[in-house]
Design a protein around this nucleic acid. Structure first.
Lengths: 336, 336
DNA sequence: CTAGGGTGTTTGAGCGCTCAAACTTTGAGC
DNA sequence: GCTCAAAGTTTGAGCGCTCAAACACCCTAG
């Protein structure tokens, strides 16, 4: 076996008695090769333990066969967990589509991030990028579009529908709607919403979730009784806000929350008082909600990641196709 | 400017009136180039917006300039959060050392994982791998060693000190020691430990954390009073275990926990009874601990990630150097 | 005045793959 | 029996870089 170094297309070709290109065809375009030849080549590949060289392929095709995604500098709350699941989903879907997933460290600001992304694309380290944590005043999509960089956002282009791009998002309104329905089924009628400051102004994740709650109430004919509190995504602040809400004359008997962090605060406010505690529903179905025995809206993160890869592979193949936006519905996780 | 395609080493060389290799030297070995030439070349690079092609470099050097790390299939608890921080740390440290970070989806089992890792290395997608979530019965290190694959583990080679490899780990014993000291300072004397089942048998993260608690107690002359409970890493189970502990005649006045998940359960058990609640200290300093107002031991994840990269770059440069193990001390995060 | 050592720069070859075009064989169709 | 297309296979060129060796030049030493 004393070969000289690892097997290459040429060494396999020699062993099988065919040309370099035929071996390549067996791997990339099997239909172009006659069955007997194919078998012979496959045997040679197996015997020699041949593994195609990725860099050589990248150089020849001018494709990195990789996408980049940001590693967040730090999580702001309990819900950060979902990112791990997203990474896994991307890696898994990527593997199925011949795309590797590259991690880049979150830079100081959006300008630096766009520059870094373009660096990755220009050096041929990645073909495209998945944008996470998008918001209404996010400048990254516009810049990437201007630079001609292929990307897909996990998150809607809030308020930028005039500049279409590929995106995937979870339908938060459906999620809070499910939460409300669940509470109605439980016999609750005074269903409050605990959201983030500013929800309701410019379009955002928060606005969307709040709307789902409001619409579901309206549909149930309970629109007038809209009870509501706001809090930063911090359990202590949430606890205070909900305590106030519960002290009011017409206290709610249930609270739909925009996040599990808020739900944790709401849960503590609800349980540290006498009487029948208000039922709390969280958002993101983190282990915290499970630990507290709370129902929580689960985002189909894995599905979202797969769809991002799908959009990206599609666009890399057909760069000119129209931009697509995909909305996936969440499901309600009930406590066990 | 109507160039034909993106700038290359040759196009930059032509523009600067030098040879291909000189441009390469300016980038990789600036000292080999005379200062005036260097300036001229740098100007040409700037003007042409030249970005070196990574695949071409990889092909020529037979180095991927990348490392791989696993994207976990799913988190089993609240503390999973630390992985995000680890990813970011790797990406950041990698960028500083010219190493990209590649994510691979966790396969079915360890055998499949080793195969996947070797695939990544043999195809030239990565030079090395960072192993996470190592345990005593982990077969991956032995296999990787056998295959000659470069790797660094985040986690000690529990019980496999005879098969040395590079690793970085957080000193859990120091962490629980800090927790005990903190409680002693607070005037607590009956300090219990809430750990995982099996801690104390074969060496593991749990054993290590437990030992830190025990040693700190002994040092304070409180060794005899060792109160202890065990629970799966589940808040509900932890709550039950601690409730039992608190019902005992000599109930503890403080509880050191092996994780924030356990701490959440302990906290609930401690607060749902009258009298002065036992003080709970968690492990991992997740947002949950902060939300509950608990002190918690914080792992210097970022530092650990940087050290992994350091070990890896060192080994890639000097493959024959002896294996190194690095232990980093955690710090105690106090509630604000 | 020339041999010889630096210093700085260029040249040739090749990394392992894919594309496009060229070539060879086969088998129908008339 | 001959042409022509389809099917299968090979050839040539090149992707953009780095390594090693070759080269040109200047300066000092004998």
């Amino acid at each position: 076996m004393a070969e000289s170094g690892p097997a290459t297309l040429d060494s396999v070709a020699a062993r099988a008695g065919v040309s370099r290109q035929t071996v390549s065809n067996v791997l990339r375009h099997p239909s172009r090769v006659a069955a007997p030849t194919r078998e012979r080549v496959l045997a040679a590949i197996r015997e020699s333990g041949y593994r195609p060289s990725l860099p050589a392929r990248q150089l020849a095709t001018r494709r990195a066969h990789a996408i980049a995604v940001r590693a967040e500098r730090q999580q702001d709350g309990i819900s950060g967990l979902v990112l791990d699941a997203f990474y896994h989903g991307l890696a898994e879907a990527g593997q199925d589509n011949g795309l590797r997933v590259l991690l880049y460290a979150q830079p100081e600001d959006e300008a630096a991030e766009v520059a870094l992304i373009d660096e990755l694309v220009l050096t041929g380290a990645a073909d495209a990028v998945v944008l996470t944590a998008t918001s209404a005043d996010d400048e990254r999509p516009a810049h990437l579009r201007a630079n001609g960089t292929t990307f897909c956002a996990f998150g809607r282009p809030w308020g930028h529908d005039d500049e279409p791009h590929d995106w995937v998002d979870v339908d938060g309104a459906v999620g809070t709607g499910l939460a409300v329905q669940h509470l109605l089924d439980l016999g609750r009628r005074r269903i409050a919403y605990l959201g983030w400051p500013g929800d309701g102004a410019e379009p955002s994740t928060g606005t969307d979730r709040r709307r789902g709650w409001l619409d579901a109430l309206a549909e149930a004919g309970l629109g007038g009784a809209a009870l509501e509190a706001r809090s930063l995504n911090d359990a202590a602040a949430a606890q205070a806000a909900v305590a106030e809400l519960l002290d009011a004359p017409d206290a709610p008997d249930a609270i739909v929350c925009a996040s599990d962090t808020l739900a944790l605060g709401a849960h503590r406010a609800a349980t540290t008082r006498g009487g029948e505690p208000a039922t709390v529903v969280g958002f993101d179905a983190t282990p915290v909600a499970a630990a507290l025995g709370l129902a929580s809206v689960a985002q189909p993160i894995d599905q979202a990641a797969h769809l991002c890869i799908e959009l990206l592979t599609g666009r890399l193949e057909t760069p000119d196709r129209p931009a697509q936006g995909l909305l996936v519905p969440p499901v309600l996780h009930l406590p066990t």
